[in-house]
Design a protein around this nucleic acid. Structure first.
Lengths: 134, 134, 134, 134
DNA sequence: GTGGTCTAGACCACA
DNA sequence: GTGGTCTAGACCACG
């Protein structure tokens, strides 16, 4: 599989794994029903502690991203959750603010930031369209 | 002063303080040369340990946001650093990606995300203009 | 291990530790990937507070000399940084000047100083060659 | 006069002043018998606390670099002290080592360091010769 | 008065 | 087991 972790990054390994699975799901690379590697496979492949791999899956299951079925394996969940809850929007806005603050501290103009974001958004949109056709 | 921290959030207190000062600097609310509350004042106000307050300041000093002068106090630095280094841009792009992923995981359309961001950017721009006139 | 600190020297303990590790790295005695004693071990050995030992390591990590991995330990970093930046050269030149000034204030001839330095440089070169063969 | 201090450098102001006077003496710019500005003048000129200026002079007097004569002022001392003591040589060697370690940590070759030092030494020698003719 | 260092000892997150 | 954070309280250097 296509995981890349950095044990020295300061970010907990289990979060790095979770983040990458979320990315794959968001981009459509992983579809509902797709099977994930078992905890043991994942641990072997990344040469990490199985506990760490298990923790990553637990977190994702708690968030409803994946489901584990005893005796079968771990799968991407049917994401019927349309949780545009108020809390989520606040979180999103908060993260947007952090982005802006970082940019300003780097002496970047807000206009320049906007262009960066727009460029990135179009890239993603293209990818999503291509995935959608698959 | 206007600090608000949440000791139970899981985010280290010293980082929360740092984040808020960075925000104030980025928005122009704190100008180069402005004096910050002393380590002891800050600790009293937030009812935290002076060491924790000191750690927040030391972190910011290492990043070049503030300057501390022994026996005098702590001040906002003259930010002559225009370091839009490659590393910084990469970091920024990475954070933009995280934002997009979060939005997609919340079943938000990219167009909706773009509108959210644009709204936030205009808000900030307005604030910056107002500060600029001061 | 072979640490020697002097708590009464006026130089902060955490800097003394840092200095010695830097020396070991510069001389090749410590190689990238080598594990350092844990914070607790080091604290026991030097009969200092674990916090002080941790501070020494954190300082070195910020400078890119070492890497720490939560739950695993602390290691000498892969020093891929070849930063003979302008700032570094200036610092070096400044320190050379200080050396010369000290020597002159001791009524030492510059020629004598040069001989001292040359002798020291050859000693180091010999050591480095020996390490290189290991 | 020609003092330049940086209150934010982390180096105590009184040491910065001392260092600069030592430099001037070592280079011959200040000769034995030359008068230094009074504590008050110095404090005014550098906009520092008179206590700080006084402390700088006290330190230098303790080291025998300057002499203060009540009612007359402060002067460069007759440096008859030829103190090539063993302690001094050790200090010098220690500083040479620090220089080498710093250079190695900057990934500088020892040969390159040697060239840097030699260049600096010749510059100083030239200056000293010129001063000597004055 | 300011910030810097250190100790003692606690609790938590991670592997 | 590892390192990270925080508190409480002490002492010192600087201005």
């Amino acid at each position: 599989m296509w995981f890349k972790i950095n044990p020295a990054s300061g970010i907990p390994i289990y979060l790095q794994i979770g983040q990458q699975i979320k990315t794959a799901v968001a981009s459509g690379a992983l579809q509902p029903g797709d099977q994930l590697p078992s905890v043991r496979e994942l641990a072997l492949e990344l040469t990490i502690n199985p506990n760490t791999a298990a923790k990553a899956y637990q977190e994702l299951e708690r968030e409803g991203i994946i489901t584990t079925i005893r005796g079968k394996g771990t799968f991407i969940a049917n994401q019927e959750t349309p949780l545009n809850s108020k809390a989520n929007l606040e979180l999103l806005n908060h993260n947007i603010d952090r982005l802006i603050i970082d940019a300003l501290n780097m002496r970047l103009d807000l206009q320049e930031l906007k262009e960066l974001i727009d460029k990135r958004l179009t890239d993603w949109q293209k990818n999503l369209n291509r995935e959608g056709q698959t």
